[in-house]
Design a binder for these strands. Structure first.
Lengths: 203, 203
DNA sequence: ACATTGGTACCGACCAGTTGGTATGTGACG
DNA sequence: CGTCACATACCAACTGGTCGGTACCAATGT
């Protein structure tokens, strides 16, 4: 209650700049100077807050994870009571946020891990953590649907949760290849179709 | 008949090196010197064959596309006569090639487009082209299955073909995040499950 | 038979600009 | 006073790219 809409501090400005610039140009393609210019600060400030570029990327992954956590936990669809409806509404919500430019709606974590998985283990570990945490938020609903419908499955709730994330990450890659979100919407429709078939959803 | 297993020429050595190194470190993270060292040639040779690093990446995308085209067109599963069996066998084949290290089985095109979509339009266009061409090879089988089973669908064969590629690309990202192919296998199992449900496949 | 020409393939030193990172300074604040 | 939060100047290493030169080969002229 104390903080009355404080201006973003320098560290936050740098992290917000990182979200935008890294999603636009990639991690290796982004220089520290790029970030400083976008954030409107100097290099001295950058290395005051982060001990290296890699350290900043780890913090940016956490920043992105926290932003996503806020977005999804506050979304309207979370109030639905039926687990299957909530799961399907999650996919619809993901479709609805495919707005604006590609750097605005694509996933920093997928971008980071693709570039850094071999060369920057700390970044890869952070990306993996926040992707996995997000997937985990879907598991209770999936488990509930499986139990309620007595789904005969040779797979786990966790594997289906990860599958949804694979579709989302893959749809971002195709969206980047094709220069717009339409193909990603189509992919999420197929994902929705799969979930409905799997759980024998009646319209 | 003249050429009796000629040694790979310098250009090919550079392109093969590019497949490996770029999939390991990303495009921006790979220097021209890295490539030359891996290929065992000098920078003079590099810029003799490619007018720029970007030009080389476009050629590497084509090289990767040609390699994939050879791999899939020669694969055993192609001899199956039933289109649905062939489609399902494609997914199984994709599972079977998830062997070795991550840089060996992941997709150069996905890696390139994720990094270059905003900053290097020529690279993005090449990646899009070869991804789309590969997806297109699945369309005849999908169309045949849809026709044979009278599938009532509000989607097209092309959209399902692209969806398979999204799942594959996304499964590579998760594999990189988790450091191994197991999660990708799980994702391809879900893809297979979707196709079977969609087309009412009897085991 | 042999010198000349011209082209391809390649080498490796070199260049200007950029990179991540550091060292030092400075003003505000407690 | 000291500490925090930054700014400025600077550096060695590396970047993509250039350029003059060399080795080799085939065609051509005499």
């Amino acid at each position: 209650m104390v903080e009355a809409k404080a201006l973003p501090d320098t560290r936050t400005k740098l992290l917000d700049a990182a979200l935008l610039v890294i999603r636009t140009k990639g991690y290796a393609g982004t220089s520290v100077d790029d970030l400083c210019q976008e954030a409107g600060v100097t290099k001295g400030a950058f290395f005051h807050h982060f001990k290296s570029k890699e350290d900043m990327a780890v913090a940016a992954a956490a920043h992105f994870g926290a932003m996503a956590e806020g977005l999804f936990s506050q979304a309207d669809y979370r109030t639905l009571s039926d687990p299957l409806e909530r799961l399907l509404a999650y996919v619809e919500f993901r479709k609805s946020i495919l707005q604006g430019t590609l750097p605005e709606f694509t996933c920093l974590l997928g971008t980071l891990v693709q570039e850094a998985y071999e060369t920057h283990p700390a970044i890869a570990a952070a990306a993996n953590r926040y992707i996995s945490e997000h997937a985990t938020t879907l598991e209770p609903d999936i488990s509930a649907v499986m139990a309620a419908r007595g789904t005969p499955a040779n797979w786990t709730a966790a594997s289906l949760a990860l599958y949804t994330q694979a579709v989302i990450q893959g749809s971002f890659i195709l969206a980047k290849a094709k220069g717009g979100p339409q193909v990603a919407v189509d992919c999420l429709n197929h994902l929705s179709c799969y979930l409905k078939l799997l759980f024998n959803h009646k319209p």
